[in-house]
Design a protein around this nucleic acid. Structure first.
Length: 290
DNA sequence: TCCTCTCCTTGCTT
DNA sequence: AAAGCAAGGAGAG
């Protein structure tokens, strides 16, 4: 079935789907093909103000798709506090990169696979697991991302055969714990950022960076600022530092406002594709009032 | 407690 | 062709 959704603010599917937040979207002729839940979605954005979707398989429903694509908001609201970044060459052109609101389980496993990997590698792992253990989608050649029980039952050697390498035992053990009910996604969604992160870091293969990715890309914690290699470089440059702990870089980024997670995604893409960033002007010194 | 180093897979790039 | 690199984590010292 077909759905046309109104898009508040700019949208650029190319950067949205290839920027390293999601790993199941690929170009398919004139449109993009992705898997969302039990559906294959084919997406186009004619005129950049409408998102035209063709849904095959189990229809997530209009509201769920609006949530997935975050069409319930104009992404520019997340720039409050980060206005200085608009002066950086190339930054303004990235505002059509839409942060997605993805499934937390799939996001968790995807980013466990992201350790010392690149986007292509992660995509291969996620597609491989889906092809091997995912349920078929009626009317589509693609498959769902497998649930925790399926991956918990997988053999480490089978995961390694898909190219997961040293990440294989992490995926297996974390799957077991999730299948056993150790993670309450809804609770994490509403918990304070620090507490939610603490719960995720308890899982094998999950450190602060991966936890923050799950919180940002799936659980609506837009204050999460995952620091990976690229964001480390970008933030060091913006803050005119030569070296700093990741936690200090995340603390520095607090000045980018409550939407710094969204900003992080734009900076990640900008730094990865465009090279070094200029230093940001220092914020005016605080005057002591009264 | 905190920092640094090493290892862990794989495949593409230089 | 050896080394570097890629959305890191865990364990040792």
């Amino acid at each position: 079935m077909r759905r046309d959704l109104r898009v508040p603010g700019p949208i650029d599917l190319e950067t949205t789907f290839t920027c390293g937040q999601a790993f199941r979207w690929r170009r398919e002729g004139a449109s993009w093909s992705g898997v969302v839940g039990g559906a294959e979605i084919r997406a186009r954005a004619p005129g950049h103000s409408t998102l035209r979707l063709e849904v095959r398989g189990e229809d997530p429903g209009r509201d769920a798709l609006i949530r997935y694509f975050r069409l319930d908001e104009d992404p520019r609201v997340h720039l409050v506090g980060a206005e200085d970044l608009l002066a950086i060459p190339g930054f303004r052109a990235l505002l059509g990169l839409r942060l997605l609101r993805q499934d937390p389980w799939e996001t968790l496993i995807s980013f466990i696979c992201s350790a010392a990997a690149n986007v292509r590698k992660i995509t291969g792992c996620v597609e491989g697991m889906s092809a091997r253990w995912g349920e078929p989608i009626p009317g589509s050649a693609r498959r769902r991302f497998p649930g925790p029980e399926r991956l918990a039952a997988a053999r480490e050697s089978d995961l390694r055969a898909l190219g997961l390498g040293f990440r294989a035992p992490y995926v297996r053990e974390t799957s077991r714990r999730v299948a056993a009910g150790a993670v309450d996604w809804n609770a994490l969604r509403h918990a304070e950022h620090g507490a939610a992160r603490e719960a995720l870091v308890a899982l094998p293969g999950v450190g602060v960076k991966v936890a923050d990715c799950v919180l940002l890309f799936a659980l609506d914690h837009l204050t999460a600022y995952p620091v990976d290699r690229w964001i480390r470089r970008a933030t060091l440059e913006l803050s005119s530092r030569r070296r700093a702990r990741d936690s200090d870089l995340a603390r520095w980024a607090e000045r980018l406002g409550p939407g710094r997670g969204y900003v992080q995604q734009l900076l990640f893409h900008l730094r990865r594709t465009g090279g070094p960033l200029p230093a940001l002007p220092r914020p005016p010194a605080r005057r002591r009032s009264a």
